[in-house]
Structures are given as structure tokens and as C-alpha cells.
Amino acid sequence: MADILVYALHYEGAFNKNSLGAVSEGAKLAAALGGEAHAVVVGDGATDELCATLGRYGARRVYRVAGPEGLAQPVVDAMAALVGEHHFSYALFGGGLLGFEIGAGLAARLGAGVAMEVTAVRVVDGRLVAERPILGDSAISEISYRSDVGIVIGRLNAFEIAAPGDLDAPVEEVVVAFSEFSTRARMLSRGEQRGEDVDIEGADILVAGGRGLGKAESFELCSELAKAFGPGSAVAATRAVVDAGWYPYAGQIGQTGKTVSPKLYFAAGISGAIQHKVGMQGSENIVAVNKDANAPIFEFADLGIVGDLNKILPKLTAALRARREG
């Protein structure tokens, strides 16, 4: 028998999808191991009602810990305490920034093995084996654990959310004594939305711009192309250009941005890093323009154009416009 402890991240009264996927996956794996999946929620804003809903995705019990939100180390303290008390065999995370930080901290604290960016987990001889794609997804490594506790950090969207049942989970309040160092970080402001609100989730066609645009002004090339595609199209971006202030955060695709699956995703000057790919690989058609023939994006583009976006985008825009008008 082996029980699994799953971390569930919430914000403003809702769990994130990634966490619901992790709880669902945890419940499935625990059942195969003959154990139970329990979930842990840390923060002052999570009500009993909200916590209980994790039962619908398979959590048999939810531990609610009062503490600061949005920081990893208090959650490490909480999970280490719960593992100590209830002897969980595995800790499971859906991914995202906090999942990586908490999973890593917990591995150090417990002397546990950790696998990250996991896309699938199997049960082999009563133990978990995690599959992790490596080297730009060109190979998949299989990882098993020698430690008492194994830590699995999923890749964004890797774990499917189960169809919710109607069973709420019992919620247990747990008081955790936080370590001195984990209270030495203080959230001053959280969730700031930089830039205007843009809707990329409703668009059928997305023209996404990356660092290859070279400067903020070049986003004009993307917006002109989007306009030429007609209504139902919008402009999206990578983290690199959002961090640089070239495009609003609301338009970012990827691990710490949105997940999209438009009919057409058109990338201009985007390398195709894993953290970007996880947010758009469900697109029906993927077209990429990149001047580097070795760019990873060509490994998963349906149509790849090796060339300079400054030459190609204006002419393509003109051609599409001519078609619409003609």
C-alpha cells in the first residue's frame, strides 16, 4: 500500500487546472498502488468548501494549512510535516513555477529522489516509474526511486483532469510550524497583470511573436498579419518578450501563461522552448518562421519556413490582404 500526497495550488477562490490534473492523476496512481491520494492546500484564502471540492477529482482527504500564499518554502514545511506524520510514499505536483520550487525543496528536505517535467507515470511492480522527456524532447528517460519518498513534478497539462464526481473530501485543518528561513520571504504584491488585457484564448488564429522580432515596435508585423487573417485572429507572445515589456502578459502562451489550441498558430521569431511548447502544442496547425534551421520549433511545426521574418511577414500580410480584397 502506498499513499500519494498531491499539492493543489489555488488563487482567488479557484484551483488551477494543473492542480486538478495532478489530483486526478494522483488518485488514479494511488488506486493502482492500493493506497489513497490526499491533497494539501496552503493559504489563508482557501475555504473549507473550496478544499472539499478536491474530493470530486479523487482526493480522499484534504489538509488545509494556514500560511502565506504564492511562496514555495512554507509549503515545503507543510508537506514535510505531513509526510512525516502520515508516511506518504510519493509527492505529486502538476508543475508550474511553484510546483518546481516546492518539489525541489521537499526533495532536499526528505532526501528524496525527484523527477521533473514528467509527462507520464506508470506503476511497475507496485512502484512508480516516471517518464521525463529530455534534450528537447528527443528522448524519454525513465526514472524510478530508491528513496522512501519519490517526488514527481509533472509537465504543464501532462495530467488529464478526471470528470468530476460528486463526492466532497473531508478537510482537516493542520497547524504547521514554519522554519525560520521560509518566513524570511514576504510577498509584497502578487499576480500583477503587466500590460493591457488581450484575449488569445478565444481566437481561431494566433500570430505569436518572439525575441526574433528584435524590438517592441516589430510586433506591428504580427498585428498586421493577424489583421490580414481577418476576424477571429489575435496576437500572442513568448515569455521572453513579455518579460522585456514588448507585449502584455495576458497574451503570453506557455508554462506561466495561457494554454491555447487555435486552428492555426503562426510563430514569428520563436525558438520553441519546452515552456512555450506546452502551452500551444494542442494547436491544430502549427506554422513557424525562424531564421535558424536548427530551431527546436521546426521539430513540431507542420509548416516550417527557414528565413527572415522581416522579409516574409510583410509580403505574406500583403498577399493575404490582396486575397481578401480580391
Binding site: 528517460s141 525513465e142 526514472i143 502549427i286
Partner: peptide, 24 residues
């Protein structure tokens, strides 16, 4: 504590069409 117990090839998705831009 984490042991690499094996490797496998990822499922191959059919390669996309590649165009080298010479004449735009």
C-alpha cells in the same frame, strides 16, 4: 535517489514541410 532506469524514443510525429526561403 532518482535512478535512470531506461530510455525510450518519443512517439514520432510525421515531419512537417520545411521551406528554405530563397525567393520570398
Amino acid at each position: 535517489a532518482a535512478r535512470w532506469s531506461g530510455f525510450k524514443e518519443p512517439p514520432r510525429k510525421p515531419a512537417g514541410t520545411i521551406i528554405e526561403d530563397e525567393d520570398t
